[in-house]
């Protein structure tokens, strides 16, 4: 109490000054139109900027769940687009009025990437989802920009993916404009370049042509874009082109992928293996 009195004795006039000025500014803001408007506007500017900062910060905390829901949504849209694309390709010359029975051949499971290598000769990716999310060995894995690889091993919660950057990876792919068909392999130099081999030498190709998956296997659906032709030559003494391709996607900075689930794997494989016998 004594300290308080001392404080008042010492700074009393300053406290009174501040008190009176506060009253004055209260009056100014409440009883003068132009100042009131300026005050309201400035206060809004200030609180507005604080609010938006708080909002953007809290958004950051919800980023993960937002990401997850966006991934799920993306997977649904992707399935819709691809199934529709396959349907329209298969029924190119039919009437499109009976669209209600589009065959839902493909389904997509979104997943985060838990680990990966890109600088080895044989590169693998580990997904954070496994058998619990109905991922099985042999399924294809794509990203938003292109193809990623094929699932090799599956545990309950994880899956190992052999990427297209792998010595044994062979992806059946074709040229988008004319359907000439070849095999996509990686020669082990650049994570952004691959080669298309066994492309017949009478095929019409040009620089910049787009390469897509052929859809001949059950691993990848038809028409997923892979990359563009950057260079081509005929193999010495061979019967086919060797085409260099610039990939659309960059596996080294991927963080989310979609696992391709085909409903007719067994049926399709059955008929292929019957033919082999």
């Amino acid at each position: 109490m004594r300290n308080l009195l001392l404080l008042i004795a010492r700074f009393g006039s300053t406290i009174l000054f501040v008190f009176l000025e506060v009253i004055c500014f209260f009056l100014i803001i409440n009883y003068n139109r132009s100042q009131k408007e300026i005050w309201a506007h400035s206060a809004n500017l200030f609180t507005g900027s604080v609010n938006s900062k708080v909002q953007s910060t809290s958004d950051y905390f919800y980023l993960e769940s937002v990401n997850d829901s966006l991934l799920t949504e993306n997977a649904k849209l992707l399935a819709e687009i691809i199934n529709y694309r396959i349907y329209s390709k298969n029924n190119e010359y039919q009437d499109f009025e009976t669209q209600d029975s589009i065959l839902q051949e493909y389904d997509f499971v979104p997943s985060r990437i838990c680990g990966k290598t890109v600088n080895l000769r044989n590169n693998y990716i580990t997904l954070c989802r496994g058998a619990k999310d109905s991922i099985q060995a042999g399924m294809g894995v794509i990203s938003s920009d292109g193809i990623v690889g094929i699932v090799k091993n599956v545990s309950d919660n994880y899956a190992q993916v052999m990427t297209i950057l792998h010595g044994q990876s062979q992806i059946s792919s074709s040229i988008m404009s004319n359907d000439f068909h070849g095999t996509l392999v990686w020669e082990g130099e650049d994570a952004r370049k691959m080669s298309l081999i066994t492309l017949p030498k009478h095929a019409k190709i040009a620089y910049g042509d787009t390469i897509v998956t052929s859809g001949y296997s059950t691993v990848f659906p038809f028409g997923i874009q892979i990359g563009t032709i950057s260079d081509f030559e005929i193999d010495g003494g061979g019967n086919s082109y060797k085409v260099d391709i610039d990939l659309f996607n960059d596996i080294s900075n991927l963080s989310h992928v979609y696992v391709v689930k085909s409903k007719f794997v067994e049926e399709k494989e059955e008929i292929i293996s019957e033919a082999d016998q």
């Binding site: 009176l20 004055c24 009056l27 100014i28």
Partner: peptide, 27 residues
Amino acid sequence: KPLILIGAFIMGLVIDMFYDSLGVHAA
């Protein structure tokens, strides 16, 4: 000092009433 502050406040308010700008002169 407290007296002169209060005096200034009163005078400012009186002027403000005539100037229709409550608080500006007082502040």
